[in-house]
Every structure is written in structure tokens, then in C-alpha cells.
């Protein structure tokens, strides 16, 4: 039996473009696990793939748009949220999901992120956080922890990193969660919950980057990073996002924010109805 024939028997093969596999991600990269969890969540919800749009930006995680069997867009650097806003407003029937990396969403597309969260545009944003720009060679980014080594900070990083969940919560997201790639079942449940909710939902996934970030910081192989996640991850639902920090001793994970708020699309529709009565 060939590889492809064998892969077609995989229970989730219907949701993937099987001819494009094996994917480009490195050995032990967490992006494959995030893709699996997303697809598994779709499978468990029985999602209509004709009504789903996946948008991704540039970077390692940006490749995800090419692997899911639905209408998907691989957009310019930092602009997946801008494009997703347009898609959602043009056709409110669609479910829109943005899956991208930390560099794409928070460095290049930082402004799009905070304003989409402020407006509460109905979309699900999943961010794979590997603490550096992996695809371009491991440069220092806005999430690189203090005093860690990257290609552009050979003596240690002296910039304070973003706390992504705090940023999302402060900007007005209605559902904010953080998981590591080790928490596969909880991450799947969180994605399911987010896909069923209305408003701007944000899920940060801490992911190992063994070949580039891990190598420079002497974290060992991907499996050593995963074992470390098991030791230091602390599940705290409803914890204040401002205190939920990622340090070398502790990663606070859980679902932090779960509120209801009218979305941008609904308010726009309401205004449209009010002024077009006649």
C-alpha cells in the first residue's frame, strides 16, 4: 500500500488535502498538532466545510491554509485579520477562522489584531506562538522572552515581550484562552467552544520550535520541550490575563475570558435596518 492510500484511511483525511502531505514543518514542530486539533474540532462539530473559510498569513503557520480542504486564503504578511474582516462583512453566513503565527499576527499585523478585537468582528483567531520568526531564520520577535538567544540577539534579548492573552483581553476579545501543544484534548475543546461562539475569539497555543529557537537556547529536542511543558504548565481557568505570564518556571494555561458582547456585523446590520425602513 502506498503512502497516499494509507493516509486516505485516516479518520480526518476528508478534511485535509492529502496529496500535499507530508507537510513542510520540522520534526517535532507543534504546528502539525494545532492543525490536527483544529480539524478534529471541525469533525466533532460536524462543520459544513462549504461555509468555512480559513485565512492565514506568512510564516511557518501560514502554510496551514494549503492543507485544509475548504476555501482558504494565504494572504500577504500580517493581513489575515484584515482580509477575514472583509470576508465576514461581505458574507455574514460564513464561519471565518484565522490561523497564523505570533510574528504575523502581533508584529506585522499588530494593529489589525487590536482593532478587530476592539470592534468585536466575528472570527476565531488561533495563534501559534513559538517565540521567534521561525521561517526567516529565527530572528527576535515581539514574543521573544527576556534574555533568550536568537539570531539577532546573540547576547540575549533585552526587550520585554508581549503577553498575548492580556493584549487580546484588554483589546476586547470575548473568548481568550491559552494552551500548549501538549494539551491536545483541552485545546480541541477550546477550539470547539470558540467556533460555536459569536464575536472575536482568541486562542494562543505555545508551540516548540526545536530546530531554530530551541537549538539556540539549548532546549534539546522537541520531546524535551514537551516534557518541560508537562512539568511547568499550570491550568487556571478564569485567571486574570495580566498575571498569566510565560516564564521559564511557569506557563499559566486555561480559558481566561468568556463574555458576551454584540458583534460588529450585528451592529452594522442593525444600523442598516434602522436607516432603510422606507
Amino acid at each position: 500500500m502506498t503512502n497516499l492510500q494509507e493516509f486516505e484511511r485516516h479518520p480526518l483525511a476528508n478534511y485535509l488535502r492529502v496529496e500535499r502531505f507530508p507537510h513542510i514543518w520540522c520534526e517535532g514542530c507543534g504546528n502539525g498538532i494545532i492543525l490536527h486539533c483544529f480539524v478534529k474540532a471541525l469533525d466533532e462539530l460536524g462543520a459544513n466545510m462549504d461555509k468555512l473559510v480559513v485565512v492565514s498569513g506568512i510564516g511557518c503557520m501560514g502554510r496551514v491554509a494549503g492543507y485544509i480542504q475548504c476555501d482558504s486564503f494565504h494572504t500577504t504578511h500580517g493581513r489575515p485579520i484584515a482580509l477575514a474582516t472583509g470576508i465576514k462583512l461581505a458574507n455574514p453566513q460564513l464561519t471565518v477562522a484565522v490561523i497564523s503565527g505570533d510574528g504575523d499576527l502581533f508584529a506585522i499585523g499588530g494593529n489589525h489584531f487590536i482593532h478587530a478585537a476592539r470592534r468585536n468582528v466575528d472570527m476565531t483567531v488561533i495563534c501559534s506562538n513559538n517565540f521567534n520568526y521561525g521561517m526567516t531564520g529565527g530572528q527576535c520577535g515581539p514574543t521573544t522572552p527576556l534574555l533568550s538567544y536568537t539570531t539577532t540577539t546573540p547576547y540575549g534579548n533585552i526587550e520585554h515581550p508581549f503577553n498575548l492573552v492580556h493584549l487580546a483581553a484588554a483589546s476586547g476579545a470575548v473568548h481568550v484562552a491559552r494552551w500548549t501543544v501538549l494539551h491536545v484534548k483541552r485545546l480541541t475543546e477550546s477550539i470547539k467552544k470558540a467556533l460555536q461562539k459569536r464575536g472575536f475569539k482568541f486562542i494562543e497555543v505555545v508551540s516548540p520550535c526545536p530546530e531554530i529557537y530551541g537549538r539556540r537556547n539549548k532546549f534539546g529536542k522537541a520531546i524535551d520541550t514537551m516534557k518541560r511543558y508537562r512539568e511547568i504548565a499550570e491550568i487556571r481557568h478564569g485567571y486574570a490575563p495580566s498575571k498569566a505570564e510565560i516564564t521559564s518556571e511557569k506557563i499559566v494555561v486555561g480559558e481566561f475570558i468568556d463574555i458576551e458582547k454584540p458583534t460588529y456585523g450585528e451592529l452594522l446590520q442593525g444600523q442598516f435596518m434602522r436607516f432603510n425602513k422606507g
Binding site: F7, R9, H10, P11, L12, L16, F21, P22, H23, W25, G28, C29, G30, N31, G32, I33, H36, C37, K40, L182, V184, K185, T188
Partner: peptide, 15 residues
């Protein structure tokens, strides 16, 4: 099915 979920390469599945 933890192996199925944790595999980044979709290379193992259990039925």
C-alpha cells in the same frame, strides 16, 4: 487516541 492527537505528521491513527 492520544497518539493520534499528538502526532504532528498525521502518521498514526487508532480505530
Amino acid at each position: 487516541s492520544f497518539c493520534t492527537s499528538i502526532c504532528p505528521d498525521f502518521a498514526i491513527f487508532v480505530v
